[in-house]
């Protein structure tokens, strides 16, 4: 069974409720139809009910079994307004206006536990999805930097998580530490295995000195300070030291639970991360799933604006695995 099918199977076990705020978008509607029919998730579309139904029928999409929620007529709106106004310390009038925006409304449904996750971005920018999520569900404990990861499935069946390949251009040491923690936790939830997280560099444990190396070393110390021994995070390592046991034995003097057996790779900046995932995809023939957002208190993911229906279905299944 391929990884994608494993995500579908895991998602089917619990069939989580996932809000899709871009309810009138054609690809979102088609994805919702597939998710419902295949029993992968229970989608909740946000938008004007008549508009969603009429557009769907013009497109030949069956949305008769789908839950549709209109922010303007939702009976639980006063509860969401109160919750928003209290948590963000703004006037109710301000909360009412802001909750008319589908993305913020979707995020608030998640914050209020009316749904289990949110998937958006087919018709909105990544920045808008991050903004709506930050205003509603907020960040996970100890995290103040949203980031993203890719799941890489290699032709030999190995699975590696790569981060951050899509959001943070030049993360500080603190941000790099948070990216390591978020990605370790995402790996644990999705794969059900112990993450072994390596912070990568052109240096292995001080073999080179440069401000770039200092940043990665600081990030390792900060990550260890924040999570203690609860997660396996180590570095700085060159990629071969992280991945190949024989190289790790040669280059590392102190025993490391991560070197030579890494399953989560943290890149020092977006140049390295983005280039690495594309090289792995095109030269090694890996399948890349993502980017998936992380760092929020509840599962949220962005979609690329060019996402196809199948991409939306897969990302939604992965978000279900993060619940």
């Amino acid at each position: 069974m391929g990884l994608k099918e494993k995500f579908f199977e895991k998602a089917r076990d619990t069939c989580k409720k996932i809000v899709l705020p871009e309810g009138t978008d054609e690809r979102i509607q088609k994805a919702a139809e597939v998710l419902k029919k295949e029993g992968i998730a229970a989608p909740v579309l946000v938008g004007n009910k008549d508009e969603i139904i009429s557009r769907a029928s013009q497109r030949g999409i069956d949305c008769s079994n789908l839950e549709i929620v209109d922010p303007l007529t939702y009976p639980g709106l006063p509860e969401l307004v109160n919750l928003y106004s209290e948590s963000r310390k703004v006037k109710k009038g301000v909360a009412e206006r802001i909750l008319k925006k589908e993305l913020v409304f979707g995020g608030m449904l998640l914050a209020a536990d009316k749904v289990d996750g949110m998937v958006a971005g087919a018709a909105s920018t990544t920045a808008s999805v991050i903004q709506a999520s930050a205003l509603t569900v907020g960040y996970a404990y100890g995290i103040s930097t949203p980031s993203s990861f890719f799941i890489m499935e290699l032709p030999d069946g190995r699975v590696l998580f790569y981060a951050d390949c899509a959001v943070n251009i030049d993360p500080s040491a603190q941000q790099l530490a948070e990216i390591s923690i978020s990605t370790s936790s995402s790996f644990q939830k999705i794969m059900g295995q112990q993450p072994k997280t390596a912070l990568l560099s052109f240096s292995t444990k001080g073999s080179a000195s440069h401000p770039f190396v200092d940043k990665v070393q600081q990030a390792v110390s900060l990550a260890k300070e924040i999570v203690g021994d609860s997660l396996c995070i180590d570095g700085e390592f060159q990629a071969d030291t992280a991945l190949v046991e024989a190289v790790a034995r040669k280059k590392i003097k102190e025993p490391s639970p991560v070197a030579g057996q890494t399953n989560v790779l943290i890149f020092p900046d977006l140049d390295a991360g983005n280039i690495a995932y594309k090289l792995t995809q095109y030269l090694a023939g890996a399948s890349a799933f993502g980017p998936i957002l992380q760092g929020f208190a509840k599962p949220v993911s962005d979609l690329s604006r060019g996402a196809k229906v199948e991409d939306i279905v897969v990302i939604t299944a992965i978000v279900c695995c993060l619940v």
């Binding site: 006037k91 009038g93 301000v94 206006r97 802001i98 925006k101």
Partner: peptide
């Protein structure tokens, strides 16, 4: 977004 909503309000 909150600033815009606050001005509107």
């Amino acid at each position: 977004l909150e600033l815009v909503a606050a001005f509107e309000d």
